[in-house]
């Protein structure tokens, strides 16, 4: 009886969309959470990343792969492809990186501040060659704060869906339709939290502004990097990354 309710069906679809488009399963990520890069491996990484932009290119590549999966997640979300094409693009352009940042909490070990990157867990030190240590620290801080909430897979799935389906994004054509979908997702999320006795999660979630600030910082850092290395574009970064961020 419970399973047949429309909201329960929506919950199952959101979770399935999310699981079908995850790069790595949470069990595998948990099993490998102490498999960290050694000091020597970090040095090798930093040597390899020495030519200007090598590490930026590498990270942009990984980020683009993650964003492609966010697009697939969006396509599987109930109601998303029924939105007009303009609004699908607006929501993804504004929200794809935010979704990746939320998903990062699954691949983050808060006990030693490392994140899963190219096969192992890496400390912020590995990303030093990017030349934006403060920004990387802010991302790690965000992941740590989300990690501390110990979200279930269903909760992360809804957080991602609600980051994406946000009727407050600028340039939406049919704001009402996006708001309707957002409302349905919010109701299903609240029902899930009530059922699992996790209602305390909502007030503890990081504010939306924090995600927005991280995305703005990413753009600022990218622009600063491009100013320093004007010859690198257009070939250095994946086409989708360029389309979204430059």
């Amino acid at each position: 009886k419970h399973d047949s309710s429309p909201m329960e069906q929506l919950t199952q679809k959101v979770l399935r969309s999310y699981q079908e488009t995850c790069q790595l399963g949470s069990e595998e990520l948990q099993l490998r959470r102490w498999d960290t890069f050694s000091r020597e491996e970090i040095c090798t990484y930093q040597r390899q990343a020495r030519p200007p932009g090598k590490m930026w290119q590498r990270c942009a590549g990984r980020l683009t792969e993650a964003i492609q999966l966010v697009v697939e997640f969006a396509k599987r979300l109930p109601g998303f492809l029924e939105l007009c094409q303009n609004d699908q693009i607006v929501l993804l352009k504004a929200g794809a990186l935010e979704v990746v940042l939320v998903q990062m909490c699954r691949a983050f070990n808060g006990e030693n501040r490392t994140v899963f990157f190219e096969g192992k867990y890496a400390s912020a030190e590995l990303f030093r060659a990017l030349g934006c240590h403060e920004f990387i620290s802010s991302i790690f801080d965000f992941a740590q704060s989300l990690c501390a909430l110990h979200c279930s897979e269903s909760e992360v799935a809804f957080l991602c869906a609600l980051v994406l389906v946000n009727a407050n994004r600028r340039w939406l054509q049919d704001q009402l339709q996006v708001a309707r979908l957002q409302g349905q997702l919010e109701v299903a999320f609240r029902l899930l939290l009530r059922r699992t006795q996790r209602e305390e999660l909502l007030p503890r979630l990081p504010p939306q502004a924090r995600l927005r600030a991280l995305c703005s910082q990413h753009l600022e850092q990218l622009q600063a990097f491009l100013r320093l290395h004007p010859g690198l574009l257009p070939s250095a970064f994946p086409p989708l990354y360029r389309e979204l961020f430059t």
């Binding site: 697939e72 969006a74 094409q85 693009i89 607006v90 993804l92 340039w171 989708l240 389309e243 979204l244």
Partner: peptide
């Protein structure tokens, strides 16, 4: 917007992925 985001638009249209 579609013109400016051809890759994103194509990914959204691609039903095989």
């Amino acid at each position: 917007l579609k013109e400016k985001h051809k890759i994103l638009h194509r990914l959204l249209q691609d039903s095989s992925s």
